[in-house]
Amino acid sequence: MTERADPSDTRKRERLVTLRPMAPIVPPVNVSGHALMVVIAIMSFLCAMTLGAVTMIQEKAEAWQGDVSREITVQIKPEDGLDMEAALTEVRTIALSFPGTLSAEIVDRASTARLLEPWLGEGFDMDELPVPRLVIVTIDETAPPDFAAIRQNLAEAVPAATLDDHRAWADRLISMARITVLIGIGILTLMFATTMLTVIFATRGAMAGNRHIVEVLHFVGAETSFIASEFQKRFLLIGLKGAAFGGGIAALGFLLLGAWQSNSMATALNDQVTALFGRFTLSGAGYFGIVGIVVLISAMTAVTTRLTVTRTIREIDRQRADPSLAEIG
């Protein structure tokens, strides 16, 4: 007669199996995982800083271009026998006579002296120097005046006056902004490629350390998609943590720099930093771009890991089918 199993023993075994913890395929904490997280954080920080810098430069260039395109300048050089005040008034009248000009403002002597103080110092006598005088004309951007006709009238009425429509500066500004954007895109592309290669090497390292587990699971029937999803979940978490940390530090850096510049106005250090690098003010589009970088790097990490694991399992299948390949490997 066969012995009947004790129902209580069966329930105990089932309870032990249920309570037994399931070990993950990829260890949740290891040295390579921490190293990969640090690398992703560094690359995310550099990508976010590059994107923020490119965004600020692009926005500043657009603002400068708008300011330049709204104004033209008429410069009058002092000459012997020239009544400067009468010439300034004549230039202003000629400019306002053309359709498309909204206003014309004569830069007075005090304002001209303030413009020259950084180079000539305070208290200099303008009468002792041949300092040109300016008339700033505001124009309608949608329907600008005829610059050639203005130049011709100025040449006839006030030969010492010259018109500058700032087109050369605007063209240079647009070219500089485009080159900066292209350089920024190139740098971001290289950083993304470096991050992708780092993820590939880290995934292959994790596969090599757990290759026997992967081979056993695959041999007993585990699908490639299941094994790849386990690696993908682990590396997605690593990529998300690293990218969020790096992007968050970059966003915090822009916020702190902007707050420092706002709270230290009219200081020598702030003036020098602003003159060299401009205002560290990042718009909402810049911060949205940083969030996009975090999401993109995390998704790229997950997708790269899944493709790498799938390719590695295919190599295992080929080696199993052809033992000579395993000997070569």
Rank of each mutant, 00 (worst) to 15 (best):
S262G: 09
V29A: 14
W64M: 09
A48E: 01
S262N: 15
R15G: 06
R92M: 01
P24L: 05
T89W: 09
P99T: 15
R133M: 06
V39W: 00
M84S: 07
A251W: 01
M300L: 14
L307K: 11
V107N: 03
E59T: 02
A268R: 10
A61W: 06
L96F: 07
P159G: 07
L237V: 04
P7M: 06
V91L: 04
A86F: 10
D271R: 10
M37G: 10
I185C: 08
E79A: 15
L237C: 04
R92H: 11
I328H: 11
A41G: 09
L88F: 00
A148W: 02
R234H: 06
T310N: 09
I187T: 11
R114A: 14
L36V: 08
L296Q: 04
T55V: 03
H212N: 13
A177W: 02
D317M: 12
V303E: 02
L115R: 13
S44P: 03
L182G: 14
F280Q: 02
T162A: 11
G292D: 10
I150H: 00
L325P: 12
Q65L: 08
L115V: 13
N210R: 15
P323I: 05
G286H: 00
I150D: 03
E128P: 04
I328F: 12
A113H: 06
D108Y: 05
D125I: 08
E223T: 15
E141G: 00
L51E: 01
R92W: 00
L256S: 11
N263K: 11
L197Q: 09
E230W: 12
N210W: 05
G329F: 15
T50I: 09
A228S: 14
T89K: 14
E79L: 14
A113S: 15
L307V: 14
A326D: 12
K241S: 04
A208S: 14
I57A: 07
A243D: 04
